[in-house]
Amino acid sequence: MAKRAVTADEARVRLETLCARSEQCRSEVRRKLVTWGISAAEREAIVERLIERRFVDDERYARAYVRDKFIFSRWGRRKIALGLASKRIPRDVADEALRDEIDEEDYLVALRSLLRAKARGMERPVGRDDRMRLFRFGVQRGFEPGLVGDALRTVDCDDDDDE
Rank of each mutant, 00 (worst) to 15 (best):
G127Y: 11
L108T: 12
D130T: 02
D130P: 00
P125G: 01
V126W: 11
A119Y: 08
D130E: 15
R133F: 06
M122H: 00
V109A: 12
L108A: 14
L111K: 04
R116I: 12
R120S: 07
M122S: 01
E123L: 09
R120V: 06
A110W: 03
A110N: 11
K118F: 11
F135N: 02
R128N: 02
V126E: 13
D130S: 11
R124L: 10
A117M: 12
M132V: 11
G127P: 01
L111T: 06
F135C: 00
P125S: 01
L115S: 05
M122W: 06
R116G: 10
S113C: 13
V109K: 15
Y107K: 14
V109N: 13
R116L: 14
K118T: 05
P125R: 00
F135I: 07
M122A: 02
R124Q: 07
V109E: 15
L108M: 15
F135D: 01
A117K: 12
L114H: 02
R128G: 02
D130F: 05
R128P: 02
A110K: 13
M132Q: 11
R120L: 13
L114Q: 05
D130I: 03
A117E: 15
A110Y: 06
G121H: 03
R131S: 04
F135H: 07
L115I: 10
Y107F: 14
L114C: 08
L115W: 14
R128H: 06
G121D: 07
A117G: 08
R112I: 13
D130K: 05
E123Q: 03
G127C: 10
L111D: 05
R120G: 08
A117V: 12
A117I: 09
R120I: 05
M132T: 05
R124P: 00
R128V: 12
G121N: 04
R124A: 09
M132H: 05
S113R: 15
A119G: 05
Y107T: 09
G127R: 03
D130M: 10
A110S: 15
M122Y: 03
L115F: 13
A110E: 14
L111S: 03
L108Q: 14
R131Y: 04
E123V: 05
A110P: 02
R116H: 12
